[in-house]
Amino acid sequence: VTTYKLVINGKTLKGETTTKAVDAETAEKAFKQYANDNGVDAVWTYDDATKTFTVTEMV
């Protein structure tokens, strides 16, 4: 189990959160659900070296 981080650069929601998951795909599903629940529709990137997902909402 690995800890993954999500950085949110949204128009109305900004911040960071983490989740523990067995792999990046599982973490991504959890983070996308979190973003969807909070109304963030954005572009996703992932950095495997830092285990960090970044979501940037387009203006």
Rank of each mutant, 00 (worst) to 15 (best):
L6H: 01
E25H: 11
D48F: 06
K11A: 14
Q33M: 08
V7N: 03
T56W: 09
I8L: 10
A35I: 15
K32P: 00
N38C: 15
G15L: 15
V59T: 11
A35T: 12
A24K: 14
Y34A: 03
T18P: 01
T12R: 03
K11T: 14
D23K: 03
T12N: 13
N9M: 12
V7P: 01
W44S: 00
T50R: 04
E25T: 10
T17C: 15
A30V: 15
L13Y: 15
I8P: 01
K51E: 02
T52C: 03
V43D: 07
D47F: 02
T52Q: 03
T2Y: 13
L13G: 13
F53P: 00
V22N: 07
T56C: 08
T50N: 07
D41Q: 10
Y46C: 01
F31V: 01
T2I: 12
V55E: 01
D37W: 13
T45F: 09
E16Y: 13
Y46T: 00
K5Y: 10
D41C: 12
A24P: 09
F53M: 01
Y4L: 01
T45A: 08
D23I: 02
T18Y: 15
T56L: 07
E28D: 02
K11M: 13
A49P: 05
A35C: 15
L6M: 06
K29N: 06
A21N: 02
T3W: 06
L13I: 12
V40W: 14
G15T: 14
L13W: 15
D41W: 10
Y34F: 12
G10A: 13
T18L: 07
N36H: 14
E57W: 07
A35V: 15
A21F: 06
T12I: 12
L13N: 11
A21C: 07
N38S: 10
G39Y: 13
T19L: 12
K32H: 08
K5F: 11
V7A: 03
K51R: 08
F53R: 00
K29F: 07
T18C: 13
Y34T: 03
K51C: 04
F31Y: 01
K29A: 09
L13H: 13
V7Y: 07
T17K: 13
K20P: 04
M58L: 12
T52D: 00
E25G: 07
K14Y: 08
T45P: 00
A35Q: 04
Y4N: 02
I8N: 01
E25P: 08
D48I: 06
T26P: 00
D47S: 04
E16G: 06
M58K: 10
E25S: 09
K51F: 08
E25C: 08
T45I: 08
T50E: 06
T2F: 12
G10V: 15
Y46P: 00
E28H: 13
A49H: 10
K29V: 08
A35W: 14
A24T: 07
Y34E: 03
Y34G: 02
K51M: 06
D47A: 02
K20W: 10
D37Y: 12
D23Q: 02
T19A: 07
K20L: 13
V40L: 14
T3L: 11
N9R: 09
T52H: 01
V59L: 10
V40G: 05
K14I: 10
T2V: 12
N36M: 15
T52R: 01
D48T: 06
V59W: 11
G39R: 06
N38F: 15
T19S: 04
V59P: 11
N38M: 15
D23M: 03
D23C: 05
K20F: 13
E16N: 06
G10Y: 15
V22P: 14
I8Q: 02
A49Y: 08
K32I: 09
N38Q: 14
V1L: 13
G39F: 15
E25Q: 11
A30C: 13
I8F: 13
E28S: 08
T17G: 05
D48C: 04
Q33V: 08
E28A: 12
T54W: 11
T50C: 03
V22W: 08
T45G: 04
K11H: 14
N36W: 15
L13S: 07
W44E: 00
T54Q: 04
T2Q: 11
M58G: 10
N38Y: 15
T19P: 01
K51P: 00
D41F: 13
T56R: 04
D37L: 15
N9I: 14
T45R: 06
A49K: 11
A42K: 05
D23T: 05
T54Y: 12
N9V: 13
K14H: 13
A27H: 00
A27W: 01
G10C: 15
K5M: 06
Y46E: 00
T50D: 03
T3A: 04
T3S: 05
T12L: 12
V22E: 08
V59H: 10
T26Y: 04
K51D: 01
E28L: 14
A42V: 09
T12K: 06
K14F: 10
K32W: 06
K51A: 04
T26W: 05
A42S: 06
A30P: 01
K5Q: 04
D37Q: 14
F31R: 00
V40H: 05
